[in-house]
């Protein structure tokens, strides 16, 4: 086994061309290997000191989040908090301060867990993963990237270098909310993200994606019929109904399939409501779960 500490993307791609696998904070890989759930790759390339992977930048009409940006950085980045607020909601819920310090958005996305917190927000914001090899790069939509639990369509020599997100339109807002049984070191029982644009009091676009109710993060289909509808309780209930309908949950230690199917509707409704409040220009503090979440009064908005 070898570990190379890289300081540039070129170093990483050269190592990966020779069969090395990337490691950032190791919060999925090392834990998984110690539990015997995954095999530790023979050759690793540490990417956590590649500073060019760890920036958030605006590039024309898109916002680019480097794959090496940690959850802690997402929480303190003004562009993410103000314009991609649901991603900040999600980052705030991940693990603990220690997990957020070393865990990265690229690691979260490429680990491919159906319960990942940053996945649904990225999907509703229309993010693509930028995948690079030593011979070129391509962008893959998240729907095409995630093929199953812990499975992606990326080749083994491809490094995720960034998540590329279209600049949200004016009067847009997004939110991610999850059902959790405790406030730290928790994994989503179910979760939902919504991104919504308002034209006056009515909805001009809406996307909703669901966490931990299918083999991958999934987007709710058929919401185009809500364009032009008012951003009110009736519309949010229609979103909840679509989420319940399209969820394909399993039963496990944390929840039964029936409970997940019911609560995914609650999360989708609250996420859409919070996103609409943000789209209207009001501030709902990050993370939504604390201001607007389970067991809290939804009127608690400032």
């Amino acid at each position: 086994m070898t570990l190379t500490i890289a300081t540039s993307i070129d170093d990483v791609l050269a190592a990966m061309a020779n069969g090395a696998r990337p490691i950032a904070g190791g919060t999925d890989l090392v834990v998984g290997a110690r539990q015997g759930k995954v095999t530790m790759p023979t050759d690793l390339v540490a990417i956590d000191r590649v500073t060019e992977l760890a920036t958030v930048s605006k590039d024309g009409d898109s916002i680019r989040i480097g794959a090496g940006v940690t959850h802690a950085q997402l929480l303190t980045n003004d562009v993410v908090v103000n314009e991609l607020t649901s991603v900040a909601d999600a980052a705030a819920l991940v693990g603990s301060p220690a997990t957020r310090n070393v865990g990265t958005i690229g690691g979260n996305v490429m680990n491919g867990s159906p319960a990942m917190d940053t996945g649904a927000p990225l999907m509703v914001l229309g993010a693509s993963a930028e995948l690079q090899t030593s011979s070129g790069s391509r962008e893959v939509t998240l729907a095409d990237l995630w093929t199953g639990p812990s499975q992606t369509s990326a080749n083994t020599d491809e490094l995720c270098t960034a998540l590329v997100i279209p600049q949200p339109a004016p009067s847009s807002g997004s939110a991610y909310i999850r059902l959790e049984y405790r406030r730290a070191m928790e994994i989503a029982v179910v979760g939902a993200a919504a991104a919504l644009t308002l034209d006056g009091d009515s909805i001009s676009s809406v996307r909703v994606a669901l966490t931990a109710v299918a083999p991958t993060i999934i987007e709710v289909d058929g919401l185009d019929s809500l364009v032009g509808a008012p951003a009110n309780d009736e519309t949010f209930e229609a979103i909840a109904a679509a989420a319940r309908e399209q969820a394909r949950p399993i039963s496990d230690l944390r929840a039964s399939d029936r409970y997940r199917r019911h609560t995914i509707g609650v999360m989708a409704r609250r996420a859409a409501h919070a996103a609409s409040v943000r789209a209207s220009g009001q501030i709902v503090p990050v993370p939504v779960n604390r201001a607007f979440g389970v067991g809290e009064n939804p009127e608690n908005i400032r």
């Binding site: 570990l3 490691i23 090392v30 834990v31 301060p97 310090n101």
Partner: peptide
Amino acid sequence: QPVNSCSYLAVQAEG
């Protein structure tokens, strides 16, 4: 920065 050292590779902590 606080880090869980049980799940961090020792060789990655060099430097």
